[in-house]
Design a protein around this nucleic acid. Sequence first.
DNA 1: ATCGGGATTGCCT
DNA 2: GGCAATCCCGATG
Length: 282
Amino acid sequence: MAGRKRKTPTLAAAAAAADQHNNRTVKASPTKLKKEEKEEKEEEKSSRWENPQNVETERSHYFTGDDLQHRLGEEFFQQPCVSLAKAFLGKVLVRRCADGTELRGRIVETEAYLGGEDEASHSAGGKRTERNTAMFMKPGTIYVYTIYGIHLCMNVSSEGDGAAVLLRSLEPLQGQHVMKQQRAARRKEGARQLKDKELCNGPSKLCQALNIPRCFDRRDLAADPEVWLERDQDTSPAKPQDVVSAPRIGIESHGEWAKKPWRFYLRGHTCVSVVNKEAERQ
DNA sequence: ATCGGGATTGCCT
DNA sequence: GGCAATCCCGATG
């Protein structure tokens, strides 16, 4: 990998300013863009293509210092499935919405699904289908599939043929207001307000909250402009002793493979979907 | 063309 | 803690 662009220290301030701007944008206009505004944006876009100066201006606005410094590149995803599942803990998933709003959540729970022998995996027996193709693509490829005909789950392919990591829970860090809206849209009218910790505490909940659509399937998490992964800026990486390993959830019908301790979560974190006391004693 | 199962969620008791 | 919702996908004929 030839050197990635490094940001200069002065960009940190710009990044903070951009974040501020985004937060205000969220509060002022959380709803979708009106047709007029959309057209305006399109116009902006075309002039940008024709005018190189605008490209630079746009760059400093769109690609904030944060992105350049913290976005995790393809090297990060090049590790075995179980290892990647643990490495994801503490990292921050970022979703850049169409209106520029950025939603952030810290990953606190994952599951590893190996290819080949793992009977609980969609890629069991090395079987490739239209649905699971992303599991066989290069590490860092997003695999989104529909479950129970209703919900979506987001995975990221790892090293190893057909292997991928399921993202199960996030701690909401930024854009909670938007997350709340997007989650509430699918619930009964008049249902109580969700607490922050309930916004992303499940694999399909996080897809709803961050608006991860089915069409993100097969995209590259290391390069996509609308979704990426960052190092956490505020806290140190999870120490191994803070990680609980437990059997994966919802795969009881798969015998021995259901017992493999390939679910990983941050011990004591309130955003974990299901706590396994038995596993925590060990 | 049809059939059975599913890496979940939310409401209800 | 039980269970309905809801329908896509993959396997089979």
